[in-house]
């Protein structure tokens, strides 16, 4: 069977994968193998439903229902001593599973343990804001909204944080191209010169690696330089490039291409 490749994922993809290649897995351990984590998991299980739990790379991962996130984080902070929310964000699974996975990375300084709480929300759903529990979620949730368009209910200031306020589109979605979309190409032109100047200026060049051989306004071709703005037809004369000073430098005789002879006799 052919491997499933989501068509609306425009991120870079491996150009070759062996058909019999099976990815190894990062080992998952049972939660019972660690006493502290086991106790924490019991405390969570007593309050809410736990969908899945395991230990991966020294940290416990707990899957919960999205409606329980506030309860769980409150429990972890007040009863299990996880005093800091180090990080939270989302992962785009729209193409495969039709939603987002959201993770909360918690840290307990007294226990020296880290827990990751994960939950899955469907497209278009919002999450409960945990900003009241951890002030750090104020900016994290704004960043999540900015990058994925996931709103947090009860957040005091749900606005974009890294992108401009009037930006359209959510950059970290898998459907969003790396160089930006149509809106991004016109954003600065519209902002600075106005929509009416679109025809004169043209869209912003957002592919930093792009070189246009026929554009003499922004690019020059080494060895084929022409005055700026010249229309290039393809027959422009070759400019000889000489990198050595006239008369040569100390110990080095000036190399002149015209005077040199190319020896192609193998018997010489």
């Amino acid at each position: 069977m052919r491997a499933y490749k989501p068509k609306d994922n425009v991120q870079a993809k491996a150009y070759y994968t062996d058909r019999y290649y099976v990815s190894p897995q990062v080992p998952k351990l049972h939660v019972e193998s660690d006493e502290i984590f086991a106790a924490d998991l019991e405390a969570i299980k007593a309050k809410v439903d736990v969908l899945d739990a395991y230990i991966q790379v020294e940290q416990m991962v707990v899957f919960i229902n999205p409606s329980d996130n506030y309860k769980v984080l409150e429990l972890l902070r007040d009863e299990c001593d996880y005093t800091q929310l180090s990080e939270m964000s989302a992962i785009d699974w729209l193409a495969d599973r039709g939603g987002f996975e959201i993770f909360y990375q918690m840290l307990s300084m007294n226990k020296r343990k880290r827990i990751r709480i994960k939950m899955f929300i469907n497209k278009g759903e919002a999450v409960n804001s945990v900003e009241k529990l951890f002030r750090s979620a104020d900016w994290s949730e704004r960043e999540m909204f900015d990058m994925f368009g996931i709103e947090a209910n009860g957040h005091p200031f749900m606005k974009r944080i890294l992108m401009p306020y009037d930006w359209q589109g959510y950059p970290l979605l898998k459907t969003y191209p790396l160089q930006g979309d149509e809106f991004a190409a016109w954003y600065e032109v519209d902002k600075i010169y106005g929509k009416e100047a679109r025809d004169i200026i043209g869209p912003e060049l957002r592919d930093t690696a792009k070189v246009d051989r026929y554009d003499s306004e922004r690019f020059a071709r080494l060895g084929h330089e022409v005055p700026k703005g010249t229309k290039i037809t393809g027959n422009e004369p070759k400019n000889e490039q000489n990198y050595q000073e006239e008369g040569g430098v100390f110990m080095i005789k000036k190399f002149d291409k015209k005077d040199s002879v190319v020896v192609d006799d193998p018997q010489r």
Binding site: P24, V57, E87
Partner: peptide, 8 residues
């Protein structure tokens, strides 16, 4: 390998 990691 398939998996996730958070390292501080």
């Amino acid at each position: 390998p398939v998996g996730e990691v958070y390292v501080a």
